[in-house]
Write a protein that binds this DNA or RNA. Structure first.
Length: 266
DNA sequence: ATGGCTGATTATATCAGA
């Protein structure tokens, strides 16, 4: 079973790239973030033609938006709102893989703006509250501890080698100690396994995002690992491989995020 | 190097991303 997470930064604009990726890699499930369109504008028909007929979509006009496209049957779609606002930042489903059921959570955590101070910056305050609520909600549901995959653009690079320079980014939103600690608590207390780091040693650099602003992003390689795939502890022995498709960042008019794939042996 | 680039919007400048 293969599942991909990808912050696509406008699904309508990048449908040709999505199609190429799906034809190349044939994941069973694709989780998208930043779809940036209403549900009525979502290219459902195009996904159906590509074999992804099971769909769960939570979009809004212009911003955010998440979706799960699947070859496997989906049920029990659930949308959780956070911080008392209706932003489309979460959707979850139960996927059925030849009788084996597992839950998938797809998240788009707020980026948090520029200033890493919740007193001065409302967006950073929102991000911290969002992480607090994620912690609370995921921990409250004991079902989240079994047969569950959590993916998404979590907008936090938690480890030293998840950023190009730990020292240079300590005071940069996405790598500040307060948000890193919150994300680490969610993961550790939920006994989630970080699937990418299960295969890639902590001493090795690992990125999923490179800024559009770098004139030569590939050469500079000042990336961050903002996109994540976690599995519940009971799925640890089913982990087979993970892959980050850095080449998709080199395609024409790319997303600034690369797709990340998990191969699970079920 | 806190700049630079990119996308969506009843657009032609503004907001958001991170």
């Amino acid at each position: 079973m293969k599942i991909t997470t990808w912050n696509i930064n406008s699904v309508r604009l990048r449908m040709p790239l999505v199609q190429k990726y799906l034809e190349d890699q044939q994941p069973d499930v694709l989780c998208l973030q930043e779809t940036k369109c209403r549900d009525s504008e979502f290219p459902s028909g195009e996904f159906r033609k590509l074999g992804y007929s099971h769909q769960a979509i939570n979009g809004q006009k212009g911003y955010h938006g998440v979706a799960i496209l699947s070859k496997l049957e989906l049920s029990e779609t659930h949308i959780q709102t956070y911080c008392g606002n209706p932003d489309s930042r979460h959707i979850s489903v139960v996927a059925n893989n030849q009788g084996e059921r597992f839950r998938i959570h797809n998240f788009y955590v707020p980026a948090g703006g520029d200033i890493p101070d919740p007193e001065e910056n409302q967006k950073f305050a929102h991000k911290l509250s969002f992480l607090d609520e994620m912690h609370q909600i995921l921990n409250a549901d004991s079902q989240n501890r079994t047969r569950t995959i959590l993916v998404g653009d979590l907008n936090v690079a938690p480890f030293e080698h998840d950023v190009w320079s730990h020292k240079a980014l300590l005071n940069i939103v996405s790598h500040t100690p307060i948000e890193v600690e919150k994300l680490n608590r969610i993961r550790d207390e939920g006994r989630w396994v970080d699937a990418q780091r299960y295969f890639v040693p902590m001493s090795e650099k690992l990125y999923t995002w490179w800024s559009y602003r770098s004139p030569d992003w590939s050469k500079a390689n000042k990336g961050r690992r903002l996109d994540h795939i976690w599995v519940s502890a009971d799925l640890k022995n089913n982990l087979k491989a993970t892959e980050t498709f850095r080449n998709a960042r080199e395609w024409e008019r790319p997303s600034d995020h690369a797709p990340v794939l998990l191969h699970l042996e079920l």
